[in-house]
């Protein structure tokens, strides 16, 4: 049993995009704030802070998670993926990110980090999603710029590209 005192800071260690990081957090510190303020990983955006808008969505231990509805203390020892982990290297974009760029699937970009994490998680488990499935997934995110249509287009295009690249690899 571990009891963390309200008025103290406690050490929290996580594996963030494959790298072990450690910082301090009060029991009440939200995971979204921990990532942004303590670790400095500002790719995760904070919108409504009550789980509605989806901007802060990340992946914790393989599970889609609203980081604003999660405490830093809860994820001690967990593996976390954020938008910073999507690009294969600093000067290249991932398949999904490239599809977003081609299709103008973002304008202001505020909601994009969360949407990318949801889609990346979903596409890694569902290689040939239907438009209806993508729309259902996107119901957990609010975007006030795009009208969603280019996001759906980008998601379907990325899915097709991921499916064909997988086929080529397996044929080779």
């Amino acid at each position: 049993m571990t009891r963390l005192k309200a008025d103290h800071r406690h050490s929290v260690r996580v594996t963030l995009n494959g790298k072990l990081v450690q910082a301090e957090a009060e029991p009440r510190t939200l995971l979204s704030d921990f990532l942004r303020h303590q670790i400095g990983a500002t790719g995760t955006h904070v919108g409504c802070e009550h789980g509605v808008c989806g901007a802060c969505t990340i992946v914790v231990d393989g599970t889609l998670t609203r980081s604003c509805l999660t405490l830093a203390a809860q994820v001690d020892g967990c593996e976390i993926r954020t938008v910073e982990g999507l690009a294969p290297s600093a000067d290249r974009l991932g398949v999904l990110q490239q599809a977003f760029r081609r299709n103008h699937a973002l304008q202001c970009g505020f909601c994009t980090a969360g949407i990318l994490m949801s889609l990346d998680h979903y596409l890694s488990r569902n290689r040939s999603p239907t438009e209806a499935e993508i729309r259902d997934l996107l119901s957990g995110h609010l975007c006030r710029c795009t009208g969603y249509t280019p996001i759906i287009q980008a998601a379907l295009e990325a899915a097709a590209q991921l499916a064909s690249s997988k086929k080529e690899t397996s044929d080779a």
Binding site: M1, T2, R3, K5, P27, R28, L30, D33, E49, A73
Partner: peptide
Amino acid sequence: MKPPAFDYLRAETVGDV
């Protein structure tokens, strides 16, 4: 939109809870 201060207890048994 930040939670108030509280103690956090990570239970390891139902007895802890």
